[in-house]
Design a protein around this nucleic acid. Structure first.
Lengths: 251, 251
DNA sequence: GCATGCAATTGATCTAGGTCAAAGAATCCA
DNA sequence: TGGATTCTTTGACCTAGATCAATTGCATGC
């Protein structure tokens, strides 16, 4: 059985009986019977780091919630230029009810566990419980907001602002998983390689590396090893990111 | 009464009794009674060129379909940097059922007429007719695909490819409205100023102008006056745009 | 006809970020 | 313990596109 948990971000979360994490709720308004229905048809799949989960254009016959690990959504041009268009962190939902095929490559960047539902079964549940569909619409609108905020980043921000924005987003998501607000000093591991960050930010890995160094030199972030980041002052970081509103819809 | 018309693009269109254009169907699967319901609550609003329809963060208590004219969705940073995140052409739908406020500035770039529904009433119709909600989910997924394809453009394409992509998209939309496929020679008016294009493409108006000149010099496009474009060979244009798949979800 | 005003073009520079190349670090095996 | 591999940093240079600054070309009104 699942249990609904309120959280400080705009999502409700659902605790599955045997998933260690809280999923962003697809079914925050479901009653116990409906939750039971989802429980019964769910199954788990695991993927290895580096493995491509689906290729753009492939049939994708399941939808899923990330239990652990990180995956990326990306598009690639024939000549190899790549742009990440989304990041899947624990609790995120993937899949497109009503769509036959995947629109992007989905690639595991770490080992992953996903809590899956057969698409057909999930769609049936959507039909019989309209608020699941509504919730999905809301989630899709959130993703759309995130994508459009990212368009502002890609089109108009400087390399330094881009880096600061990415770090802020990861910090926020990390805090949200712990049901906290990011404030004052924050600490976490970067889930992405420099190359993956570059693909996300529309720049080269060298520029990413230089900007990481610059932000460290200027005391905006502290780095231990390659991936562990400490943010001494979250507000300072937000300022560097150039965001007008502190909230932000970015995933 | 509205009448459903099939079209060559992926959308079904609905012809309202007294709108001269076909709306992208919000209700392609509605029966006559349901269509009647929408007919009864619809109303019209017009806006002047340059007028801001809603500001980001404002209450927006209606949803609408564009009848005539063009509007843009954009985000602006405090220092004035602006990024367009969407383009509203005749037949497009605007609005966010289930959301209180607008997420972006919506600005009319020409005089406009919109066919509106009070949000509350529209939401009620969504509740009583689930497939309206489903259709809306599909449309939102389309918009998400478009936004993500645009992310690839903003992050990874050269100025020339960006320009070619934008022209191709406008040509496709223009053809779709006429229920045609863009093929061979195509001709239409650019609905945007050089500055608006620049805001859409994440570059400066000077660079837009230079690339327009370059594409003309190279025979990819022909220009009469400032705005009228003829594309002698649509496939050539697509090639210049660097798109791997010819389809494209872009709005 | 001639001023006024705006959108668009074009030219001359400048620079942020890309490209190419060479070292470090960290991790993994054997 | 010592390659081998992979990720990251740093440096030197270059270029696409930004910036700054004139024009040019149309409209509009007088």
């Amino acid at each position: 059985m699942q249990k609904i948990i309120s959280s400080p971000d705009r999502y409700l979360h659902v605790q599955c009986s045997d998933c260690p994490i809280r999923h962003r709720a697809v079914c925050a308004r479901c009653d116990d019977d409906e939750l039971q229905l989802l429980e019964e048809v769910k199954f788990y799949r695991s993927f290895e780091a580096g493995q491509t989960i689906v290729w753009s254009g492939d049939r994708m016959d399941f939808v899923a919630s990330v239990v652990s690990g990180i995956a990326t959504l990306s598009q690639t041009m024939e000549d190899g230029r790549r742009q990440m268009v989304g990041l899947l962190l624990p609790s995120d939902f993937v899949g497109r009810p009503g769509r036959e095929t995947a629109a992007y490559d989905v690639t595991a960047t770490t080992d992953m566990l996903m809590c899956c539902f057969r698409k057909k079964q999930f769609e049936d549940i959507m039909l019989s419980t309209p608020h699941v569909g509504q919730r999905l619409l809301e989630m899709t609108l959130d993703e759309l907001d995130a994508a459009r905020e990212w368009m502002l980043l890609l089109g108009r921000k400087s390399a330094r602002e881009k880096l600061a924005s990415l770090i802020a987003i990861i910090a926020r998501r990390d805090a949200a998983l712990k049901l906290m607000q990011p404030e004052g000093q924050v600490s976490f591991d970067l889930p992405l390689s420099r190359e993956a960050m570059a693909d996300y930010l529309g720049m080269t890995l060298e520029t990413v590396s230089r900007q990481v160094s610059a932000l460290r030199r200027d005391g905006v972030i502290e780095i231990k090893g390659k991936r562990h980041v400490t943010i001494p002052d979250f507000d300072r970081l937000i300022e560097e990111a150039g965001d007008d509103q502190d909230g932000g819809f970015l995933t």
